[in-house]
């Protein structure tokens, strides 16, 4: 099962919902997980990626192709990443960070985490709960205690419409 050589190699990736994607090896090895497979010579056939769905994988591949087309210029790469993530909604970001983790792509992982953190900044607790689907599992007494404990964070902060 030796990898073919000579022609520019493309790899075929399979998502967990059985969609196939072809991607240039040079772009795909941004993922350390895939790079290891290539180096071990087990990337000849279809590479199954059991933890990534097709929709997310399509985005990740767009990113792989986009970022690998940029020569070593951190500024440009950063602006590509910003632009790439600018229209992603929160659910997609959550899926992408999971995929980046599984694929072991640190650059994407860092960028998406920063983006999620940026969404959370300067928001009220109620907003964060609603927006991120976080269940409030405190009793009213516990919640009052937690709020008291974190009182310092609410000083001088404009809260939005929520309580």
């Amino acid at each position: 099962m030796a990898a073919e050589t000579g022609t520019p190699t493309t790899l075929t990736l399979k998502s967990n919902d059985d969609e196939l994607f072809s991607v240039a090896e040079s772009a795909a090895i941004l993922s350390v997980t895939i790079r290891n497979m290539v180096e071990d010579g087990c990337a000849g056939g279809v590479i199954p990626l059991d933890n990534v769905d097709g929709k997310t994988l399509a985005s990740v591949i767009t990113y792989m192709n986009g970022i690998s087309a940029i020569p070593a210029d951190e500024e440009k790469k950063k602006s590509y990443r910003d632009k790439f993530l600018s229209d992603k909604d929160f659910e997609t970001l959550a899926d992408m960070v999971l995929a980046a983790n599984y694929l072991n792509m640190s650059c994407l992982m860092d960028a998406v985490s920063a983006k999620i953190a940026q969404v959370m900044e300067k928001k009220s607790v109620g907003w964060v709960r609603r927006k991120f689907g976080i269940e409030n599992d405190y009793t009213p007494e516990e919640e009052a205690a937690v709020k008291e404990e974190h009182k310092w964070t609410f000083e001088g902060v404009e809260t939005d419409d929520d309580n």
């Binding site: 959370m120 607790v125 964060v128 405190y138 709020k147 974190h150 964070t153 609410f154």
Partner: peptide, 8 residues
């Protein structure tokens, strides 16, 4: 700190 208040 604020996010910490959202859930246990």
């Amino acid at each position: 700190a604020k996010v910490s208040c959202a859930s246990s």
